[in-house]
Each structure stands twice: as structure tokens, then as C-alpha cells.
């Protein structure tokens, strides 16, 4: 039962963190279980909340009423002051309403919700310093738990970078290597488009949004996102369903891209760019960083040279990269 209470607690924390626009550290499960008072168990035993929570999954809240959330929030939040910051505790009714509205939107979007301690939440992402407290996912959420590689690069990509990303996408699909990217113009869209041009039934493509799942960005890639889901891939977000993109959301999103993967491939990056930020996140998270060698000296790939200088592994042709990565993922 403590895992059930933990999942509801982290779901409430996730909603609160998105509302307050600040990351909140999730409770450690062991410490959490030890700190639960008998009163909470008593209140949670079904008599007070009148709920069947045997499964421990968060499917029930998707159809739960606002009264349900009011009861859960008013039960858990005051009982755990060390977990919930004062700002959260000051407006329990507002927090309950936010939780109810959030899960209504998740249901309406036919999305899956994964709290951080759910068994379906990717273990690799849980290991980073500041993991998302929860994820909303449309499509095949099981892809999140498979070993994958991230591919990112400049929005203003050179032809050689587009070609490299597209070809790598096709080869990755053939090798059944899940590929995570941001869905942006340029290199990100190229790798997923390349994956979708294959004739395979299932394309293991994962796109992580900076905004909510209901606000796909860029809009011009909406068809790409629909095709990803229809072909067996998935779309992922940390944000509320209807949340738009703010400047720091793109950087926060990049930590998820690198955190989901065993390593990140930088196809083309300017010296100061979002792709370089993703590379830095990958390094800080202890993941591999690979960089594509530009065929010519290209001012738009100055970041590639800087990464090589910093020790990133250099990738040559897409086919060689795909073979190398397939072997690495299998091991």
C-alpha cells in the first residue's frame, strides 16, 4: 500500500511543481515508506477514501472526481510537511482542482501517465539529478524503458547533416534501435522522418516535447508527430497537456532527451546552441556523447569540433555508426 500512497504523493508533487514552475525533489521510496504514519494507512485503508487501490497504478485518478482529489490532497499534504513545501500547503483546494483538471486532460488526450516511481517510468531517466516527477505519453510507452540513443542537432542544418540524420534513422529502425529526439526542425525531424520512410511495421521513435502534448511544437511537424504515434513510436512530455513553450522549457526538455538514452549523437551543432546543451547534459549524466564528423569545414558545425576536443567519440558514416551502436546497446 505504501507504493500506492507514494505514487499519489509524487503525482501531487508533479502537478504542484509544474504549477509553481520549479522542480521539487521526489521523496526517496525507502525513507518515504519508513516515515508513513499509521494514521495515513488508516485513512488510506478504504474506509475514509472509499477506494480500491490494490493495483498501485494511477489508472484510477484518470476517471476520479474532483471530490476524490480533494480528499486525497487534504489527507496526504498536511500529513507530510517535510515533502510538500509551504506554498503547496497554503491552498489545498486549488491544488486538488489542478490535479483533477490535469488528469481529466490526460484522459481526454488518451495519454498514459507515469509517476516517477511507477514501474513503467524509465529507470535511466530516474537516475539523473533532476528527473521529471511525472511523464505524460501518447503512443507506445514501453519504448521508454528500452535502451535507446538520442540524436540531436541544429535547426538550421546543412544538407550533409540532414542526409546523415535521415540515413541513420533508416538504419536504426532496421536495427530496432529506439531513437529519442526533440522533434524540432532540421536534424531532429530528419532522423525521425528517416525512420518513418522505412517499410517496417513498428518504428521505435520517441519525440520529447518542450511544451505539453496538446501543444506540439513546431506546428509544421504535427504530421510527423502523428505518424510517429501511428507507427508504434511515442510522444513524451513533462508538462501539463495544454502548456505552451517558454525559453527555459527547451533546455529542461533537453535533459530528458539525454536522460532517456544511453548516449547522445550530436549531428551538427553551432558553438552555442541547444544541441551543445544536450551534449553537456549527457556528459553530466554520465552518458556517452558521440559527434558526427562534418565532411567539410563548416562554420555551422563549430560545436562538433569543440566536442571532439573535449573527448567526444567521433562517428563516420551512418552505417558504421548504426553497427557500432547496435553492438553497444546489445552489450
Amino acid at each position: 500500500m505504501s507504493i500506492q500512497i507514494l505514487n499519489f504523493t509524487t503525482a501531487i508533487l508533479h502537478v504542484a511543481s509544474q504549477h509553481l514552475n520549479r522542480w521539487i525533489r521526489p521523496p526517496d521510496p525507502t525513507v518515504f515508506a519508513a516515515s508513513l504514519s499509521p494514521d495515513i494507512f488508516g485513512l488510506w485503508g478504504g474506509e475514509h477514501l472509499d477506494l480500491d487501490l490494490q493495483s498501485g497504478q494511477l489508472s484510477e485518478p484518470l476517471s476520479a472526481s474532483q471530490n476524490f482529489w480533494r480528499e486525497v490532497v487534504s489527507t496526504l499534504v498536511p500529513a507530510m510537511p517535510e515533502i510538500f513545501p509551504p506554498k503547496i500547503r497554503s491552498d489545498l483546494d486549488g491544488l486538488a482542482r489542478l490535479c483533477y483538471e490535469f488528469f481529466c486532460e490526460v484522459r481526454q488526450a488518451s495519454a498514459t501517465y507515469l509517476a516517477i516511481w511507477d514501474e513503467g517510468y524509465p529507470a535511466l531517466l530516474r537516475q539523473i539529478v533532476d528527473p521529471p516527477l511525472g511523464l505524460t505519453v501518447t503512443g507506445d510507452a514501453t519504448l521508454l524503458c528500452r535502451p535507446s540513443v538520442a540524436v540531436v542537432g541544429s535547426r538550421f542544418a546543412a544538407n550533409w547533416a540532414i542526409d546523415w540524420a535521415s540515413e541513420f534513422g533508416r538504419l536504426a529502425t532496421a536495427a530496432d534501435i529506439p531513437v529519442v529526439s526533440g522533434g524540432a526542425y532540421g536534424c531532429d525531424a530528419a532522423v525521425h522522418t528517416g525512420m518513418l520512410t522505412t517499410q517496417f511495421d513498428r518504428v521505435p521513435a520517441l519525440a520529447v516535447f518542450a511544451g505539453g502534448l496538446g501543444m506540439p511544437y513546431p506546428r509544421h511537424n504535427i504530421r510527423l508527430f502523428e505518424d510517429i504515434v501511428a507507427s508504434g513510436g511515442c510522444l513524451v512530455s513533462e508538462r501539463f497537456i495544454g502548456a505552451g513553450c517558454r525559453p527555459h522549457d527547451f533546455l529542461a526538455r533537453n535533459r530528458i532527451i539525454s536522460g532517456l538514452s544511453l548516449g547522445t549523437i550530436i549531428v551538427q551543432a553551432a558553438e552555442r546552441s541547444g544541441a551543445m546543451v544536450t551534449a553537456r547534459f549527457a556528459g553530466d549524466q554520465g552518458r556517452e556523447v558521440w559527434v558526427v564528423r562534418p565532411p567539410y569545414s563548416d562554420v555551422r558545425a563549430a560545436g562538433n569540433e569543440a566536442l571532439v576536443t573535449d573527448g567526444a567519440l567521433v562517428l563516420g558514416r551512418p552505417v558504421d555508426a548504426a553497427l557500432e551502436l547496435a553492438a553497444a546497446l546489445m552489450s
Binding site: A184, M215, P218, R219, G244, D249, L251, S273
Partner: peptide, 21 residues
């Protein structure tokens, strides 16, 4: 919303020194 997001995206790139907030 796309205009808003696009400018946010580019400003994020321009402020990768850490001052995005």
C-alpha cells in the same frame, strides 16, 4: 502559439549561458 514558441526556442539558444530564466 507557434510564434510564441519559436521565439522562445531561439531565445533559449541565445541564452544558453544559463540565463534562460
Amino acid at each position: 502559439n507557434e510564434v510564441r514558441s519559436f521565439i522562445a526556442d531561439l531565445m533559449a539558444d541565445a541564452t544558453v549561458s544559463g540565463d534562460a530564466s
